[in-house]
Design a protein around this nucleic acid. Structure first.
Lengths: 157, 157
DNA sequence: GTTGCTGTCTTGAACGATTCCAGTGTGGGG
DNA sequence: CCCCACACTGGAATCGTTCAAGACAGCAAC
């Protein structure tokens, strides 16, 4: 695991430093961690790591494609996950902010091709499903954080 | 237009105030405006409107479903648009941040249903297409703001 | 038209996530 | 093993957004 990360980093021309390896290990353990969570977790294995170092590491890893940055509309802080290259999508709970991975719904490129491309060179498409997780459904008292448009009754999306 | 907005506001139990009407007019003229742009534009028709008033208005309108808040991963500031209820998607330029509306690509509910719902009660799905707009494709010198994962070669999304 | 209540706007300050800067250190190719 | 470019540290700044308290103004009732 360690060795794997070391080669992954070197393969992209990045040095294999302790903070970087710790960040990768953290994201493997906890996908969708916020920068703050990463800092907390990394500090449990390494004595002193600055917040800025973590941001720097996350940016460097995101730039090199090892890490994917996700920030759902309305979330306070960005989340990070290892970029495993499967281009999965996310299911986000409007109640508690829980993020769950879901594989591509359809298995073909239909989601990648918008009806009109307006002259864009398309690189990627990203799908976010919004809803309420099972726990927030039962606890109607959960913190409700309505951020964007309200519920959609049915139909095409 | 004015009258239409007035009834729309009152219909949701909101007062029809000048700042609110001005914000709605601004968003009709410029979809995907940031809060700052809205402030600037609104101040051209109204003498004095505070930044906080605009944020308050945008939040109130978003909560009532008249306005949709969009913030693409990596964007500094959130964007706002009138919620016309057609649940369209967005095409975002990685170069300059330009946002363009696209109708739902497929016209059926395939995008709304992830393969696994993990017990979630789904409310909505949101698709963001990433790429380079035609201008940024020609100007290779444009500001490149890589934020999340890097380009995806092909295949399912 | 006037009055009064309540929801809105204003001013001013705070907050949290992220970034910038300058200096120190350390990984790893030579 | 040595050196230096790349990484990390600490501190401060920035930027979008929100909070709080008080002044103001829609609009419903009279």
């Amino acid at each position: 695991m360690e060795a794997f990360d070391v080669t992954a980093l070197r393969g992209r021309g990045l040095r294999a430093t302790r903070p970087r390896l710790a960040v990768l290990a953290t994201l493997r353990r906890r996908p969708h961690a916020s920068a703050e969570e990463v800092v907390r977790e990394v500090r449990e294995s390494l004595d002193a790591v600055s917040v800025q170092a973590v941001y720097d590491v996350l940016n460097a890893l995101a730039l090199s494609g090892l890490v994917r940055r996700v920030d759902p509309t309305g979330a306070r802080a960005a989340r990070y996950e290892l970029d495993v290259g499967d281009n999965h999508h996310h299911l986000v709970c409007r109640g508690c902010g829980l993020i769950v991975d879901v594989p591509c719904a359809v298995g073909h490129a239909v989601c990648l091709q918008p009806a009109l491309d307006h002259g864009f060179a398309l690189a990627e498409s990203e799908v976010t499903y919004w809803g309420l997780c099972s726990r927030c459904q039962t606890e109607a008292t959960g913190p409700v954080r309505v951020t964007a448009s309200t519920a959609l009754p049915e139909g095409p999306a």
